[in-house]
Write a protein that binds this DNA or RNA. Structure first.
Lengths: 237, 237
DNA sequence: ACCTGAACACCGTTCAAGT
DNA sequence: ACCTGAACACCGTTCAAGT
């Protein structure tokens, strides 16, 4: 071990920087959800007092925004270049890449999906200038004109948002505190084990098991195919 | 004024009850967003101390869940019975009824869309036993079999979630505090007036005005038509 | 340069006490 | 029955002070 290396480590202190703070925040959100992320807890997780974090982030809001950015960062480098030789293939690999984020971070994805977009042209879940620009440029190269590019961008983002947020909210939710609403006649009745008690004879009760099946993957693939088919018609007609 | 009426008013006290608390909470969320809803502020709005609210709600979480329920409450009575004579018409009027909720309460709709569903068969934004049951029963009456009903339910909810949350997040957002992230080279650059500064030459910059147009209504109508067409094919084939 | 102690102005929630 | 004062255990954030 050279004294240079030691020096380097000592200069770096605990090695704390913005990326490390955001990484720790993401881990915490993955475990407990964004609601339970506190600056004090985040500091503790990094072996430091909460106040130290303000050297790297401007506050809790900046942490959350930074986590969103870190999830989308470098996303365009993860799309499959092989598949990107057609616009259909590009949209497919891009969709799958973003879906991977939602599946890997179901508790963080709602942030990507619902935080107020910084600009109207940053439609969730494509909340990244880098991603949106790549999208627009790529479709333009495939021969879409401006109106078509924008139209595809709109349908594509709505499609992703609906499917991925739904999938994330079914997967996520972790150990949510079982809350008993105060009894008020017509409310639904969460029973003591946290599951909803269904009124006898209701259609939901009869179809309960079928409704509870998880077909996230097939649903996504089928709807993506349908979207591409529809776009294809819109382009060639 | 009879002494009976006075008595009645006095017995009712400030007329506080669960519905009044939830209504005040919704008004507050409409103005300031759910994040800024506090029990203390809610009490103040009702002329009462925060602790008094705990007589009607079990806590802040219960308030938020109650607001969601109140938004969806009685929704099935607001669908147009004329249009409900065909399943296509039913899905259309139901979709429009739910869209009205999203448009009227853009700051509250993210709650409907993203709070962890109480059960896997309560897919956001259809987070209400009443609505889902009505949906399943009605489609069954129109001749869909169990598998078809469930499939339609899945596509319909994904469609609504994607379009309405996107529309709500563009409309909502109110007076968000302008947050400056700490400078870190590769981040995007929010300029002093809160708008994002676009890199020169980027495709987003060139298409900025087209991307910023609001076509929420047409988009919704067109995608709804497309969905219905697709379902029609799935049913008759 | 990096971290912290102390402090400020808040939170949600409980509970015994008031009327 | 309905409301509250006081208290507890937290928050995010600032800033002067330490090393």
């Amino acid at each position: 071990m050279t004294s240079g290396a030691t020096e380097e480590r000592r200069i770096a202190g605990r090695g704390l920087d913005r990326a490390a703070v955001l990484a720790a925040a993401l881990r915490s959100i993955d475990r407990n959800g964004a609601q339970r992320l506190t600056m004090r807890g985040l500091g503790q997780q990094l072996g430091v007092q909460a106040m130290s974090l303000y050297r790297y982030v401007s506050g809790r809001e900046d942490v959350l925004e930074g986590v969103v950015a870190s999830l989308l960062d470098g996303l365009v480098d993860r799309v499959d270049p092989q598949l990107s030789s057609t616009w259909q293939g590009y949209l497919q690999t891009l969709a799958h890449t973003i879906r991977a984020v939602a599946i890997d971070h179901p508790n963080a994805f709602p942030l990507v999906a619902t935080r107020h977009p910084a600009a109207p042209w940053l439609r969730p879940p494509l909340r990244s200038l880098e991603v949106v620009d790549h999208f627009l440029v790529t479709l333009g190269r495939f021969g879409f004109n401006d109106d078509q590019v924008v139209q595809v961008y709109r349908s594509f983002s709505s499609f992703l948002l609906g499917h991925l947020l739904l999938e994330a909210s079914l997967h996520g939710g972790e150990t949510s505190p079982v809350e008993e609403p105060i009894d008020e006649g017509d409310a639904h009745f969460p029973s003591s084990d946290g599951t909803l008690e269904l009124p006898p004879g209701s259609e939901v009760l009869r179809l309960q098991s079928k409704l509870s099946e998880d077909h996230g993957h097939e649903e996504f693939e089928m709807s993506l195919e349908t979207l591409l088919d529809r776009l294809e018609l819109g382009v060639t007609q």
